[in-house]
Structure formats: structure tokens, C-alpha cells
């Protein structure tokens, strides 16, 4: 009847077919599989919240055959997990999330329990800069999607109309909207998990509480923030204690960034700062001082 519609239809089915070759179903919870993307040879990324167990994980490949998968590592803070599978699938054609524009056609491509593609269509609804997830993970770009993420779609691919993978979709980072993690974030987390099996987090060895600074102190010390964080406990011989920190010190800046809440400090304890001497501005007894803290690595919690 009308050829523009047929052209459009063919374009979408081609994009789904092409990208779907690198999408698997991940079986790591009861009844409902989630999806995963064959990101690098033998490496699958998936949504961490879809893994309800660390062992006896399998993936269903396009076409329906099943392979065992081993868990490389998981990062709940960005809702990413990495699996290793036999390298027999094509690797996803990964594009550049920076090329996304609001209004671009967006597809979410997932896999069903029998290895067939399932797809949802919409648009890129909003884009913004880097953000922190509710679980504290750092994400390089906010990609909000106007499309439905159906059951089993988390861990699937954000796919352009050209069939390129531009991120991993998940329903685990926002209650109200579909979110895609950009390529840069997935790459960074995959690198760290493959290297170390975990996401290293910086560590100070302190307990903190936010405090408001009195106006007079702000003026006398020429501080530009309303508050800081006060150290309420100190680990013996921890990174902060070794630098000479004392209980009652108020941290007002960390590596030249103003901090007003404990969250600000946590956000700055990035893996890159581990082992680095970082200048930390404090107020002690009404006077300003600078401590140099060599950032440690947060001890691994036993599961």
C-alpha cells in the first residue's frame, strides 16, 4: 500500500536481526531470564539485578542452544555484571553513545528464554551529563528512554535504527523510566571487573556525619560551602589516621572539590584515586588545615 512504511519496517527488522545475533538470554534466577550482550569475545554484560545467584548460570544463544557461563564479577552500583561464555557468537557492533540525540529512534533488543529476539521501540527521551545511581555508581551519561522495558529486557541492548549497540538497558536504576548505561560506562566497568573481578572503591577508614558550619567560621576562614562532614570515628592505622586526622576534624574540601555531605566524599573515592596522596582541607579547632591522605582500598566484604 505505502512504501515509506514498508521501508521503515524493513529497517527496523534489519536492525533487530543484526544486533540480535549478539544478544543472549541469561538464566540466573527462577522463571524469568534476563538478557545479556556479547560485548567482547567471550565476555557478556548483563544487568546485575537479574542475577539471583553467582553459580550455575547459563546463557541461551540466538537459535536456542544453551551454554554454561561463569561469573567474572558484578557491580551493583551501576547494575552491571560480567559473565564469561565460550566465544562462538558474533560480538556486538558497538557504536558511540555520544552520537545520541534526543528524539533519535531507540530500540531495546532482548532475548527470550528460547533464544528469539524480542524488541521494543521508542525514542531517546532525554540526555544529560554524568550522574550517580541510587546505589552510588558513577555513570558517564544519563540516557533516558521513552520505551517499554518488558519482563526480561534488563541487560538487553539499546540499539540505533542502524543496528548499532549504544548501551545496555536496565529497569534496575530508575523506578519510573527506562535507562540505558552508555558504552563508556560499560567499557570501564568491564575493564575493572575483568582485571580485578570487582570494582575497587577508595577508602578512608573514617565514620562521617554532615554538619552545618556557623556563619562566623565560614567568614573567618573564607569558606564557600554551608557545611562539611565531621569525622565521628577513626579506624586505627587507617588511611585517614595515618595522615594525622583526628576525631572532630571537619572536612570541607577533598582534592580541591568542596564537600558538604558524606555523599560528596563517597563520590570522590574513585578507583583512580586509590594509592594517591590527596589533599584534604579540614577545620580543626576553628582553624583551617590541610591533610594529605593516601587513599586506601575499601576492604572486601565477605559474602
Amino acid at each position: 500500500m505505502t512504501s515509506p512504511l514498508i521501508d521503515f519496517s524493513n529497517r527496523i527488522t534489519e536492525a533487530v536481526e543484526q544486533s540480535g545475533k549478539a544478544i543472549v538470554a541469561v538464566n540466573a534466577r527462577q522463571r524469568f531470564p534476563s538478557s545479556g550482550i556479547h560485548w567482547r569475545p567471550g565476555i557478556v554484560v548483563t544487568a546485575d539485578h537479574g542475577l539471583k545467584r553467582d553459580e550455575e548460570i547459563s546463557v541461551t544463544l540466538p537459535g536456542g542452544s544453551t551454554r554454561g557461563a561463569t561469573l567474572v564479577g558484578r557491580d551493583p552500583s551501576t547494575d552491571l555484571a560480567v559473565l564469561r561464555i565460550p566465544n562462538e557468537l558474533p560480538v556486538a557492533d558497538i557504536g558511540d553513545s555520544q552520537s545520541l540525540r534526543v528524539g533519535s529512534l531507540a530500540l531495546a533488543v532482548a532475548s527470550t528464554d528460547n533464544g528469539n529476539s524480542a524488541v521494543s521501540m521508542g525514542v531517546i527521551s532525554a540526555l544529560a551529563g554524568s550522574w550517580r545511581t541510587w546505589r552510588g555508581g558513577q555513570v558517564d551519561q544519563l540516557i533516558r528512554l521513552d520505551l517499554n522495558l518488558y519482563s526480561g529486557f534488563s541487560g538487553g541492548a539499546l540499539v540505533s535504527a542502524e543496528g548499532q549497540v549504544l548501551g545496555m538497558v536496565t529497569a534496575g536504576l530508575s523506578r519510573s523510566t527506562a535507562i540505558a548505561l552508555p558504552v563508556a560506562t560499560v567499557n570501564r566497568v568491564v575493564d575493572q571487573l575483568v582485571q580485578k573481578g570487582r570494582i575497587a572503591r577508595g577508602y578512608l577508614g573514617v565514620g562521617m556525619q554532615p554538619v552545618r558550619l556557623p556563619e562566623s567560621l565560614k567568614q573567618s576562614l573564607n569558606l564557600n560551602s554551608d557545611g562539611g562532614v565531621i569525622l565521628v570515628s577513626l579506624e586505627n592505622d587507617g588511611p585517614a589516621a595515618r595522615s594525622g586526622a583526628m576525631i572532630g576534624d571537619i572536612v570541607v574540601a577533598f582534592d580541591s572539590e568542596t564537600v558538604g555531605d558524606t555523599e560528596d566524599v563517597l563520590a570522590l573515592l574513585t578507583p583512580e584515586r586509590i594509592g594517591m596522596p590527596i589533599p584534604v582541607a579540614i577545620v580543626r579547632g576553628g582553624t583551617a588545615a590541610i591533610l594529605t591522605i593516601t587513599i586506601g582500598e575499601r576492604p572486601r566484604r565477605e559474602r
Binding site: 527496523i12 527470550t112 528460547n114 528469539n116 529476539s117 524480542a118 524488541v119 521494543s120 521501540m121 520505551l147 517499554n148 518488558y150
Partner: peptide, 14 residues
Amino acid sequence: GILHRTTEAWLQAD
């Protein structure tokens, strides 16, 4: 919309 998946006795559409 688009066809969501094709394997079932039903057609499923997004």
C-alpha cells in the same frame, strides 16, 4: 508500534 516477538500462538506487539 512494532512486532515484539513472533514465537507464540499469539502475536505480541509493542
